[in-house]
Simulated scan of single mutants.
Amino acid sequence: MTLVNNTDLLNLHGQQGASSRQESTSWMAALVHAIKVKLSEHDFASLFTQHEAEAVQPLQQHITMAGKKLSRFSRSLSLASHTSIGVLKRKLWPISTTSVQPGILITPMVMACPTLTCNNHSLTQELRDWDTSKVTLLQGSQCHLNVPVLAGRCPVCNSLYWADHECFTQNNGGDVCLYLNDAKYLKVGKSVWVDRLVSRAIVNANYSFHASTAAITESGKPLLQSLSVTWPV
């Protein structure tokens, strides 16, 4: 994923490598340094064979060695802008990862009924496929369409669990719904849910910057119009 998301750097690496006939360039070395910061010492060492890792070498030599490995790896992924003899094949453009995005479902956070009399009984899926709502989920900077919203029911006490609230029957026969303060997702419209990051951004804009709901809606007009979202104050 690091290589796929850094096509501009791979273009620079390919151009410098073609000009200087180098397999490992300063651009690839910078990428290795970024990977080394992200990984632990043990994980970074796993990039090398046992013989390479045990050899006493300065850090710069390990960086160069790892750069060559990433350069060859990029070629095996068809992420090379130049051929092995330095001839330009094509400029690499940003690569969309939409096709490999995970499938998201909105489900209850609890895995068993917490009611004492139920003894942590497992929950059953309440809704059949044709009854399941398909909604739009705003998760950070991503917009997921047709996300199923599932509910769980305890077969012992018949309590109903959703991602943002729980419903149960009291002893007097009345039904009570409790909304969860620690909910991962929040329903904000008829068919729109948001995660905590998006909801926090809306609240911060309202209270910290005194931004009105109309102003927030106007700033995100292209997206919000397409989703028909009206943000609650």
Rank of each mutant, 00 (worst) to 15 (best):
residue 69 K to C: 02
residue 159 S to F: 02
residue 98 T to F: 08
residue 88 L to T: 05
residue 200 R to M: 04
residue 136 T to K: 06
residue 156 V to P: 05
residue 192 V to A: 07
residue 138 L to A: 03
residue 202 I to A: 06
residue 182 D to C: 09
residue 69 K to F: 02
residue 105 L to W: 13
residue 69 K to D: 01
residue 125 Q to N: 05
residue 192 V to F: 11
residue 165 H to Y: 12
residue 184 K to H: 15
residue 107 T to Y: 09
residue 150 L to P: 04
residue 94 P to W: 01
residue 64 T to A: 08
residue 176 V to G: 03
residue 183 A to R: 08
residue 139 Q to A: 08
residue 141 S to D: 08
residue 164 D to H: 05
residue 145 L to R: 15
residue 77 L to Y: 04
residue 166 E to C: 09
residue 164 D to F: 03
residue 146 N to Q: 15
residue 165 H to I: 00
residue 138 L to G: 01
residue 181 N to H: 10
residue 110 V to P: 06
residue 105 L to P: 00
residue 70 L to W: 00
residue 147 V to H: 09
residue 117 T to W: 09
residue 165 H to E: 12
residue 110 V to S: 07
residue 146 N to A: 12
residue 141 S to R: 11
residue 70 L to E: 00
residue 172 N to I: 02
residue 148 P to L: 08
residue 84 S to R: 09
residue 143 C to N: 14
residue 65 M to C: 07
residue 71 S to H: 08
residue 190 K to A: 10
residue 110 V to I: 14
residue 203 V to D: 13
residue 75 R to V: 04
residue 135 V to D: 09
residue 200 R to A: 04
residue 98 T to D: 11
residue 167 C to L: 07
residue 162 W to Q: 13
residue 61 Q to C: 04
residue 101 Q to R: 15
residue 66 A to H: 01
residue 188 V to K: 03
residue 80 A to E: 13
residue 167 C to R: 06
residue 56 V to E: 11
residue 127 L to S: 06
residue 63 I to Y: 09
residue 116 L to H: 14
residue 138 L to Y: 01
residue 144 H to Y: 15
residue 73 F to W: 14
residue 196 R to N: 04
residue 86 G to R: 00
residue 64 T to P: 00
residue 77 L to W: 03
residue 110 V to W: 07
residue 173 G to P: 01
residue 104 I to T: 06
residue 151 A to L: 13
